[in-house]
């Protein structure tokens, strides 16, 4: 019996790793090529003769007066403002639903749960019309404000608060004379930290990745986030095939740069979100 343990399972894992890594590997390799190498028609999955990553990066950051950097900044702004805002709102609400009994609570919470089923994109067009009535379309608010809504985050925080914050502890704090806000801030919040980080990460990611909402709301390219900006480049590149060649290089290296921040965030915050994600599925 010298058969190594889990041989088939390990082979399966290796196959999966290859499948999930291929596009990213291609992106890394393609980022080091110039237009000539990219369109050479061979060796798409391996490096070409020259190493042009630095040139490509310089072109990326200077193209069209550095509009890429602007988009990167916009994406960061939307993701942090939307993500942090959404987390604050959802954590407060989840705690409120979990730890207070008040008339109408069950009714409101049922409405929140029901709204998890509402496809949010179905709301984008009417939200656009409403926003344009008050003159908010084509401003940063048109992207940030709708991102604050996440019924699922509220649900997650309610489950998390019920599970991790004991009532006795809150009562003890109240008896000691702490106000509700202080009880929340000093007693409940530290206990809910993994859940809060999970919700923060999820909402930052979904705002950073959002495409439909900014595509609809924004018309001036100065306000575009990366997703919409790269989509615009792609349209330009494919509509003029000859002159578009250099733009394909920018799209590729631009895609590489824009996936780095989130991958870093996920790697560094691993401990938190891996535990936090479990909560939603336990109930």
């Amino acid at each position: 019996m010298t058969r190594p343990r889990h041989l088939w399972a390990k082979l399966l894992l290796l196959a999966m790793v290859c499948y999930f890594l291929v596009p990213v590997w291609w992106l890394v390799v393609a980022s080091t090529k110039n237009a000539e190498g990219l369109f050479s028609g061979k060796g798409a999955l391996w490096f070409a003769g020259g190493f042009h990553l630095v040139d490509n990066l310089r072109d990326l950051f200077t193209f069209n007066n550095g509009e890429y950097l602007r988009w990167l900044g916009n994406s960061a702004l939307y993701a942090f403002a939307g993500g942090i805002g959404c987390t604050v709102v959802s954590v407060l609400a989840g705690y409120g639903f979990a730890k207070f009994r008040f008339r109408g609570r069950n009714l409101v919470f049922a409405a929140v749960l029901g709204s998890v089923m509402v496809p949010l994109t179905a709301l984008v067009i009417p939200t656009f019309v409403l926003m344009s009535n008050v003159g908010l379309t084509d401003t940063i608010w048109a992207v940030i404000l709708p991102s604050l809504l996440s019924p699922f985050a509220v649900y997650l925080m309610r489950v998390y608060a019920s599970a991790s914050v004991p009532d006795e502890l809150l009562d003890a704090a109240r008896i000691d004379g702490a106000g509700e806000l202080r009880t929340f801030w000093q007693v409940a919040l530290p206990l809910m930290r993994p859940g809060v980080v999970t919700v923060l990460l999820l909402s930052v990611v979904s705002t950073w990745n959002n495409f439909f909402l900014p595509l609809t709301m924004l018309s001036s390219s100065k306000l575009y986030p990366l997703t919409v900006g790269i989509g615009l480049w792609e349209q330009l590149a494919s509509s003029n095939n000859g002159g578009g060649q250099s733009l394909w290089n920018l799209i590729i290296v631009g895609s590489l740069v824009s996936i780095v921040p989130l991958i870093v965030a996920f790697l560094t915050l691993q401990k938190y979100w891996q535990g936090g994600l479990a909560v939603g599925s336990l109930k």
Binding site: S115, T127, E180
Partner: peptide
């Protein structure tokens, strides 16, 4: 206090959903 905690979410919920 319970209502106050869910108030910000409620505003967002009403406005954007």
């Amino acid at each position: 206090a319970g209502w106050l905690f869910i108030l910000p979410f409620l505003v967002v919920f009403l406005a954007f959903l």
